[in-house]
Design a protein around this nucleic acid. Sequence first.
RNA 1: GGCUAGGUGGCAGAGUGGUCAUGCAGCGGACUGCAACUCCGUUAACGCCGGUUCGAUUCCGACCCUAGCCUCCA
Length: 462
Amino acid sequence: MITVYNTLTQRKETLQPIEPGKIRLYVCGITVYDYCHLGHARMLVAFDLIVRYLRYRGLDVTYVRNITDVDDKILKRAQEEGVLFSDITARYIKAMHADEQALAILPPDQEPRATEHIEQIVAMIETLVSKDFAYRADNGDVYFSVARCPDYGKLSKKNMDELLDGARIEVGELKKDPRDFVLWKASPDDGVGWDSPWGYGRPGWHIECSAMSTCALGNTFDIHGGGSDLKFPHHENEIAQSECATDSTFANVWLHNGPLRIDNEKMSKSLGNFFTIREVLKEHDAEAVRYLLVASQYRSPINYSLDSLEQAQKGLERFYHALKGLDIGNAKSLTNSRFEKAFQAAMDDDFNTPEAFAVLFDMVSEINRLKKTDPDMASQLGALLVRLADILGVLQSDAEEFLRRSGGDELDAEAIDALVAARDQARADKDWQKADEIRDQLTALNVVVEDGTGGSTWRIER
RNA sequence: GGCUAGGUGGCAGAGUGGUCAUGCAGCGGACUGCAACUCCGUUAACGCCGGUUCGAUUCCGACCCUAGCCUCCA
């Protein structure tokens, strides 16, 4: 039994698929006007983890994550660079896919784009207009009437009257009510746009998600996800549009991942603590970044710092030390292990990855103990560890290889091998002084030599 | 100001009405030519004040503090 925290009801609920054995999941993806940043990575990894776990538990998941490929920020960027907006989106979609691959994020089953769903978007707006939930303003914009939707605010727990107080009063207001939001934006004749019953224009941001999710998954689907900062207004507006248009519940469960902070501050361009995924991966090991992103529960804030990355690296090293030297490829697969049961219990409880990691660390202790007494069993446990860690998207590297690679700096492996071999010779000759001299040399290169029963191995110590 | 989520050992980060989270760091021991890794043992926490209770870090209430959202944002 899997329980998940539903933002809508503010409590943990048993996950009850609409269709037995199947989960239909929609997640708000990225607006492609720049390279993906760490906050995007947090969201992408959170839902990657959730999808992987649901599949591991035998659910047939249809994972849909959209791409917003028409939007004011994109148009602005295109204008600045003097290129087509589709050139901008093509560039950043490609970059996004590369970043995802680097962080072991599996692609969604469907990746619909707003520009490919103009027809469905227009159709949904037409429905809303015909049911009097939306109206056309004089300039060709179409707005949603928030006042017509009595339970507006149910996701973000906002009060309709307070929203009215807080709403910004705009000069030359086209809206009938300050809470109303745009469904269709009029475009200039020479701008990016599509023909519609209300004139030449382009979709508002919120409507595309309503149209695409409904199109891919039906009027009602199991889970809708996204970053917690999208709760209001984006997700609130999605619910309003969709439920008014279809007269059906939109999504049964809402899942929101927590924010990512940098050195305990909100990441923002103005604070100068803004990191793209590719910048970070130039300096740090991708697996350490992935580990950092799954080591906290998906709803908790994550603090990104050099220190937290180092902690992640240390954690991985403990795992890989345990895996080193095991014969995982030939190990018999373990079923019904108490470790796997504990792992499941942790993950069933709203994807409690910290507790799942505690189980994996217990396995490490057990493996290390068994290495001497029962190497065969140690390998079997090692294989199980790798299998379970795969759900979290970590520990899929070769142990030796991981311990040898140093995030960023390329050390000359052959030169190190030669030094290690020379030291082994000195040790064989019992020339301890020479052996120690070589160790000192290697230490200066941040290389730790480990003398095991099967010979000496080395690794990078940062 | 409103809404939401939090305040746990040196740090990160789970959880529970009364026995261990876990990782890193620390301390003692074993192993090692020296190390590293590892193992064994060990120290240490639950914002503040009340209440419920035989007993609360865990439940309830007040208070203090922090973060996010309330405007584009994963």
